[in-house]
Design a protein around this nucleic acid. Structure first.
Lengths: 137, 137
DNA sequence: TCTTGAACCTATAGTGGCTAGAGGGATTAG
DNA sequence: CTAATCCCTCTAGCCACTATAGGTTCAAGA
């Protein structure tokens, strides 16, 4: 039997975040002590580690809810879980691509800046005049 | 003299967003018509294009506020603007690096998934067991 | 001049994934 | 028994918007 603080220390998930996950339906409301404090078991610990791991990998809360639901049916085909992970991977790749565009544009702007007065500053000028950009964004 | 809708169409910034920028102090409160509607001039159009461009490049609102303040002093050295852009570039690069870590971890998880039952599914197992991961995250 | 419909106004609440704080009760070590 | 530390609920705040409600103004056509 762990108190919420024990669970927090063991998983690295902050106490208010654990309560938030309960509210979001990722963790079922637990047993309580006589004084109404949450008491957890080992399965809750594993569940929370699963959630934390999924969050670290960038899955959002609805996706984690689905993954949890799937993991409760071990006999079902795993295409669902695979699809969720694959969709997420695509989203991550898309985000990387768009950040790399930004990176190149910013590199160009910063490297052109000679370091004189604001009047000639490429940073300010590039922002004022879209025509100085390489491509659409 | 443009109405807010004209400004919106010309810059691609939505009407409520323009009002939001005014509230955030990026655009000074404008002249109003007799009936209390905002009326803009060409300088406002340029200002808003500057803001939109900076937002597209991922600058946050405090940074844009600073850039605007700097652009009002054309005789000052441009080190300030350069630093803001450079800091932002570093942040973008850091975000790319961390997303690439995610990408590799997700690739590994998805590619291991054979497509059988949830019981053996690598996606679910990898999430349950951090030990299956390559490195810390 | 009048009417209609589009555009405008303010104010408030919602998005996601937490985090911080107030104001109280429970637990536990000494 | 007391004091320190934990825990409880509830509410509000973060960011950059977006959406809605309920009302007013504007501009073009009849």
């Amino acid at each position: 039997m762990y108190a919420i603080g024990d669970l927090s220390r063991r998983t690295g998930v902050k106490v208010p975040t654990i309560r938030y996950y309960e509210q979001m339906g990722l963790i079922s409301p637990t047993q309580r002590s006589e004084g109404n404090q949450r008491r957890y078991e080992k399965t809750d610990l594993e569940r929370l580690a699963f959630i934390r791991h999924a969050r670290d990998l960038g899955f959002d809360i609805p996706a984690i809810r689905e993954l949890i639901a799937l993991s409760r049916h071990p006999e079902a085909p795993c295409a669902g879980a695979d699809r969720i992970a694959d969709d997420h991977l695509s989203a991550v790749r898309a985000k990387i691509a768009s950040l790399q565009k930004l990176e190149h544009e910013l590199e160009r702007i910063v490297s052109h800046c000679g370091g004189h007065s604001v009047e000639d500053c490429y940073v300010i000028r590039a922002l004022s005049d879209h025509g100085l950009c390489d491509h659409e964004h």
